[in-house]
Write a protein that binds this DNA or RNA. Sequence first.
DNA 1: ATGAAAGCGCTAACAT
DNA 2: ATGTTAGCGCTTTCAT
Lengths: 343, 343
Amino acid sequence: MKYEAITIKDIAKDLGLSTSTVSRALRGSYEISAETRKLVLEYAEKLNYRPNPIALSLKEKRSRSIGIVVCEIANNFFSQVINGIESVAYKKGYYVIISQSHESFEREVANTQYLASRSVDGLLISLSTETTDLSHLNKLHDKGLPIVFFDRITEEMSTHKVIANNFNGAYQATEHLIREGFRRIAHLTISPHLSITKERLAGYKAALADHHLPYDESLVQYCKYGGLIDAETMEAVDNLLALKEKPDALVAASDKLSTGCLAALARRKVRVPEEMAIVGFTNSLLTDIFHPALTSVRQPAFEMGQVAMEMLIDLIESKHPITKFETRVLNTELSVRSSSLKV
Amino acid sequence: MKYEAITIKDIAKDLGLSTSTVSRALRGSYEISAETRKLVLEYAEKLNYRPNPIALSLKEKRSRSIGIVVCEIANNFFSQVINGIESVAYKKGYYVIISQSHESFEREVANTQYLASRSVDGLLISLSTETTDLSHLNKLHDKGLPIVFFDRITEEMSTHKVIANNFNGAYQATEHLIREGFRRIAHLTISPHLSITKERLAGYKAALADHHLPYDESLVQYCKYGGLIDAETMEAVDNLLALKEKPDALVAASDKLSTGCLAALARRKVRVPEEMAIVGFTNSLLTDIFHPALTSVRQPAFEMGQVAMEMLIDLIESKHPITKFETRVLNTELSVRSSSLKV
DNA sequence: ATGAAAGCGCTAACAT
DNA sequence: ATGTTAGCGCTTTCAT
């Protein structure tokens, strides 16, 4: 009942050669006569021989495949990053295995372990909101597994990292709202310990400070699951609406939070931007057809994927252990649409 | 520089046992004394021993992993299907490997071959728009690799399949528009040879016929890449707008086509639904915040994933070769919103 | 109840 | 230039 592939042994037997000769001929070793090589290659071609990557992995402890761990693929930002990763991987002959943590620490651990045990040559990871303990990654990293972090990174590990300029992105978003004349600007964000949360919060605070606006903690709402759970976003928005001094504008820190709060405000019949202006971190391609058109901070997601994959290949293919690591910061882009315009 | 995992050999050496004893103890063979078993299990636990799935795959020619091939993951429908697949896989102890064809036949072939050579125990696939030749799948299937098709299926292979009731979905969408009073209803759809295209087109035609409306070929626009390429959707919409007798309504046959034509119409300053009403096949969760709110035919994507995975596990775990195959048809759901209402 | 050894597909060190 | 053999981690038959 199972796929029986052609093996090197089959070829060897049929041709009356040894497996090692066949193996060498196949990989073009110079010690094989042109004649034999041609014979083997043609016969292999005829039989549509494909080397068994499992056997190769077992032998070589490498697989020319890399693992990706993200929280969700049903997310514009992450699916664009993945496409960037794939574009480089494909060119360089690496296969990509995608897995989702669904923002669960447990799933993240299970996925990384599985990928490692499957001999991936490296790991590209954006941490789940639940993750604070990094021992699962540290262990693998200490044992030599190349890891590159993107987007949701950690200070606790020395390796290559790629992020968007989250500070600037949030700063620009906030400043834009201030310049439009909004004064009580809320910030809807993710789990407080995530790197992106901290960076974006800092940008938001800095813009307020630079424009002499007070920082009011009650205007910052944390959504542990970053928009994955509708009720959570709804509650955060309700909290803001319940304040004695309601905010007049809002910076949403993620893709799902942006659309989620747009939906939540619609359900609460709050007009955007009249009663609440919005700028959202989002990579949605649909910002123009939202109601209202959504002002966005776009992250260079595809590029982030490309850079991350290139960095990972650097680590994987480097002859010498690398000790000097780099954190690349890519610029975000603010696109102003009607959701953030003073009327 | 590579992850060196604990092996059965390490345990055997440390404990002064043979590898076979350790192996048997680990898998709870009854021929091992309770004492030895306990010793081994505890020691393995202490060392955090994990069996090497690569070695297992090589030996057993199975991997407890399954492969998914979809055109794109950056797509509400497919990412929801994948989540459905994962939910069942996780429960049943299967690992899921996701790959994208990007609507390219070549990539689809490469992906299926790679997955097969990686000893996946089965394949879940939704065909690319380019695919007409099925020999890559037929070969694998003939050699015993279990395959389940979902969404974009083929008549040419006998195996389990899951689809939405595309005929009904399109019928209901079209009929709804007719009942609202629209008379020239266009159909924006994907590649003509895809199963879903045929089924939806048939539903559209049937609704027209049942309501004594003429079928006009010029009202059907095919987008080979199903919305993947913006320019293509734009052109199709322009074609419709250029007709001497413009349509007053439109049924879009996919997720990306629905949002794509909403965007295209906005760019052409065509008001929806006043000048053109729309019903779209979409699983977007954002239909309410589109402008205007988008009437949708929703497919039970998560459920489709669950059913597909259950069917695949049936095939994989069946003791006897299965010869009686099933095509499950799941109901769609029409949700009326403002984009399709006569004003 | 336990061990020795073969074998899954492949590569590479070591013969010849 | 080609063959023999060991070994990657594991299971499993065959001995004991």
